[in-house]
Amino acid sequence: MMTASALPDTQWLRDLELITTAAMAAGEKALGFFRKNPDFRYKNEDRSPVSEADYAANDVLKERLLAARPNYGWLSEETDDDEARLGCETVFVVDPIDGTRAFIAGKDVWCVSVAVVHEGRPVAGVLYAPALIELYQAAQGQGARRNGLPIRTSQAGDGDKLQIALSEQRVARLPAAFRAGMTRIAHVPSLAYRLAMIADGRIDGTVVERNSHDWDLAAADLILDEAGGRLAGLDGQPLAYNGKQVTHDLLCAARLSVLDPLVAAAGGSGPH
C-alpha cells in the first residue's frame, strides 16, 4: 500500500511527464517561427519584447496543462495575471520563451520553461531548448537530467578559477579578491538556461540582477537544486514562488561550495 508521504512524489513524476510533453510541443510550435522574422512588440511596462511565437507557445501550454490539471493555478509571463492562483496549493509557472530577445535575433539560446510549484516551491520542472536539441528535467528528490542523462554541478578544485556569468558592471563592483579568482562568462540570453549551465557543470555560478520573475526561475531553480546547486537571495534563503509579488531582488546561483562566497561578494558589491 502506498504511504501518504510517497503519494506526492508519484504525483510530481506524473506532472513531470505532463509538463515535458507540453513543453516539447510548445517548443516545436515556437520553432516554426524561429529565424522567420516573427512579429513582435515591446511591452509598455518594462520594454521587454514579446513575439507572436511567445503567444503561440503560451496557448499550447495553457491548453494542454490546464486541460490535464484544471485544479492547478496558472502563472505565465504571457497571460494576464489572475490572483485566483493565490488560492491554489499547486500552480503551473510558465515562460513560453525564456530568451525572447535571442529568439528574435535568431540566436539558439532560448528555451521553454515550465514548472509545477506546490506550496511555494517547485516540485517538477522542465527546460526545453529546441534550437539546441536540449531537454532538462527534474522532479523533487529525483535528481536532474539533460537529454535523459543525470547531471551534476561542477566539482572543480579549490585552485581552479571560478567560471561566473555576470555583467561587466557587476564584475566591477565585486571585491578585488573575488575578481582575482574568477573568469567572467559573457552574457547568456536566457536566464533559465544560464542556471541550467550551472546545473550541468559548465559554469560555477551567476548573479541574477533585480526584477527577475517567477517564470524566469522556477523550473531552473529545481533543476539546479536537484543537480547539487542552489539559487538564493542575499540572505542565503531559497525563493518562495506564487506569492502576490512575483519579482525578486538580487540573487545568486552556484554550486554549493561557491554559493556562500558569491553571496558575500555580491552582497558587498554596492548598489545596483
Rank of each mutant, 00 (worst) to 15 (best):
P130F: 04
G181D: 05
L162M: 09
D39C: 02
P122M: 11
R202H: 11
F34I: 12
D158P: 09
A219D: 13
A220P: 01
I164Y: 13
F40I: 05
A68G: 05
V60W: 04
L224N: 07
P8G: 05
T10H: 13
M182P: 09
V50P: 00
T183G: 02
L234C: 00
K161N: 10
V93K: 01
A165S: 06
P38C: 07
K244L: 08
L222G: 13
N211L: 00
A177L: 09
A138D: 14
V91H: 14
V263C: 03
A180M: 15
L251N: 00
S113M: 10
G157M: 08
A266K: 06
E78A: 03
G87P: 03
A265V: 04
P96G: 14
L127W: 02
A219R: 04
S269R: 01
K29P: 02
A265F: 00
Q155S: 10
R41H: 10
T153G: 15
R170G: 00
S5K: 09
A220V: 12
L13C: 12
T100A: 11
L86P: 06
T21K: 15
M1S: 12
V263M: 04
F178T: 13
G229E: 06
D225C: 14
S269E: 02
L18H: 08
S113W: 12
L31Y: 09
D81R: 12
L65N: 10
A26H: 07
L66K: 02
H248K: 14
G233M: 02
A220G: 04
